[in-house]
Design a protein around this nucleic acid. Sequence first.
DNA 1: GTCTATACTTCGATAGAC
DNA 2: GTCTATCGAAGTATAGAC
Lengths: 201, 201
Amino acid sequence: MASTIKTASTRRLGAPDSRTRGLLLDAAEQLMLEEGYAAVSSRRVASRAGLKPQLVHYYFRTMDDLFLAVYRRSAEHNLERYAAALASARSLQELWKLVIDPGGTAFVMEFVALANHRKAIRTEIARHAERFRQMQLDAVARVLHGCGSPANSCPPVVAVLLMTGLSQVLVLEKALGITSGHDETLAFVERCLRDLNPSGA
Amino acid sequence: MASTIKTASTRRLGAPDSRTRGLLLDAAEQLMLEEGYAAVSSRRVASRAGLKPQLVHYYFRTMDDLFLAVYRRSAEHNLERYAAALASARSLQELWKLVIDPGGTAFVMEFVALANHRKAIRTEIARHAERFRQMQLDAVARVLHGCGSPANSCPPVVAVLLMTGLSQVLVLEKALGITSGHDETLAFVERCLRDLNPSGA
DNA sequence: GTCTATACTTCGATAGAC
DNA sequence: GTCTATCGAAGTATAGAC
């Protein structure tokens, strides 16, 4: 079908919509979640996908290209999923539920660690994060507007960062087995949100 | 001097207080910060320390042992440093300054990423984190007590988690090049702390 | 699009001489 | 305590046949 692409360097490169390419991305994503980015090698990815290692290099010139493709596919998917959920949220409580959902957080953390030392991935993450932040901001502003945000409350963008930080700590520490103060904090947040937005119970 | 240690397996193992061992730990720590944990190999560590690769295995049976030793040494050092700073803090503002200090955060993040898939390191991080949390909690409780914490304020442990989460997000995002909302959030925190504890300005 | 074959590098780890 | 020597495994990447 879709023919191969000739790149500047004489190497051949597989079509982006190939089924095999998708299998490789699936395998890489799983490996990354289960054993960390260091476990994502061409041999192991291929073996998990039931394919030959060389195919990885046929579809992705370098391993970094593979990482980038995995990230892009997943981020795009999450963005769509999240946008739908945000759009239907009618209270801060519902937004908070979305924020503290641990699904995807482990994945993001893995990429953040990887990104710390790879420029290409770092900029890609930054791009998506800004879009994400903007989406959350719109949702919070919309909800706060609906219930007439009080003057003593914080600006929407601060609320977003507060929720993000809190959920990040809670999810991360839970994964590490640290839990002291978590219950109290969750209860406190619920209380704050209820005070701020009584209609959302 | 300090003689070598015979382990269960017939291998020899260098003395814990050896100068060379310290050099290897230094090299590993630097490499980890600059290029990530994936760059920490016996060969690269040794080369940076100006030593032979086999010495790494003489002082550390496995690479995980090396990682663990690097973490322990640094965590112990940070704990002492932090304890001294906390003890002299007289206001929430001063505590906040300590919390948002990015020094060491990159280091911790690197280990968290590594810990995600290595049990030994995970439990070690959890142990230190709990001690850390307790220290912060004591300090916050002490400061809040001094200024008569108002009833509408949050419990000390919640304050600690809030500060931790916020600083984590700010530091992490800054490292990635994401800055939207940061200034507003910092200003908001300052305002909150001033309201809560006017004496600390 | 997938295969075989392969070049080359780096890795962790160990044995034993000095 | 440090060295030489070495093993076997795994890594990235490429060329070229089918």
